[in-house]
Design a protein around this nucleic acid. Structure first.
Lengths: 178, 178
DNA sequence: GAAAAAAAACCGTCCAGGTAGTATAGTGAA
DNA sequence: TTCACTATACTACCTGGACGGTTTTTTTTC
């Protein structure tokens, strides 16, 4: 059966392996097994390991862009809708974050150039955030604080309790509207 | 010649490889060559690859702790000296940051448990930052924003220009004393 | 304080196991 | 017929770690 989903299943499998077992266990064979596909089948879709990791990054960048864009679209034309959406999605969406972590780590390990789509995404967002009706420095600080949460999740350094995290989230949201 | 520095030279070599060539090139042989030592010699100091990475993390955690502690000690008993020191060191010290990046990535790749010393460090700092005479939520936000800078350096996502980075730094510093 | 003994620091090779990628022959569905 | 695979076999290469040495430094003994 020809399904466009096969490729995506493989990408999910690869992310899962990176998340659960670490980058060194991201082998072609392990990925094939996890995805329920033969090694040949995997190589049919992704002709090399680098292509696989590139697929991971491209896919998650696209996903993340859509997610933020959807949140922005919901916000009508409020001031600070970009930074608000960025904070919302990152604070409250453990799932895409996990994939993001896996993709970033894999790309960094295999070939840093593969991170370019993420870099573009970041640059786009930074531009939007700075031109969204609130003080750009303030907006950037909120953005960085959100990224800080992300760093601590990436390495499981969650030194923040849930309440404090919530307090931070609320204070940042209030700050936007100040 | 028996020097206590040999071990540290090896650790630097390992960090350098991770920074410049990525984790997959952190092999025992490459590390030995980079450090100017034989493979056997390396294995004398670090009996396994995991021990080597553990050495990296332990060493950098110690270094970072000292760095922050020294900065705190200089600050006499100002309010917010911990968060101020944390921001100063992280914003303005590219060198230990590079080693930190390498250590974190290597530990995450080899065995997440090796990150524990960093986790302890982070928890210690968070405790100090929250009990340092300024609003703990504010202090936490500053801390997270600082970590955000760090994330963008780790993956070379430096979407911020130097001026903006400086503006952010100054705004955060002023905010502490408000 | 010199010789001897012991410990520490280091060298270089070998090997079993694992990995990316290739090759090939075949299958079922659209 | 082409697409989207399966299954198996194979190659060429690399890596961690074991191991048995050797040299250098330190300690002990006389």
């Amino acid at each position: 059966m020809a399904r466009a989903t096969r490729k995506i299943e493989i990408l999910h499998a690869a992310s899962k392996i990176v998340s659960e077992r670490g980058i060194f266990n991201l082998t072609l064979e392990a990925t094939a097994i996890e995805a329920g596909v033969s090694k040949g089948g995997l190589l049919y879709h992704f002709p090399s390991k680098e292509a696989l990791v590139k697929g991971m990054v491209d896919h998650l960048a696209e996903n993340y862009r859509d997610k933020i864009a959807a949140s922005v679209a919901e916000s009508a034309n409020e001031k600070g809708k970009w930074i608000k959406s960025y904070a919302d999605v990152t604070f409250n969406n453990p799932y895409p974050n996990k994939e993001m972590h896996a993709g970033l780590l894999a790309a960094k390990a295999v070939n840093s150039d593969l991170l370019d789509p993420i870099r573009n995404l970041y640059n786009e967002w930074q531009t939007e955030i700075e031109q969204d009706g609130i003080d750009p420095v303030k907006a950037t600080i909120i953005r960085l604080a959100t990224d800080g949460i992300w760093l601590s999740e990436l390495f499981d350094l969650h030194h923040l309790g849930e309440e404090r995290k919530e307090e931070v989230y609320l204070k940042l949201k209030n700050w936007i509207d100040e």
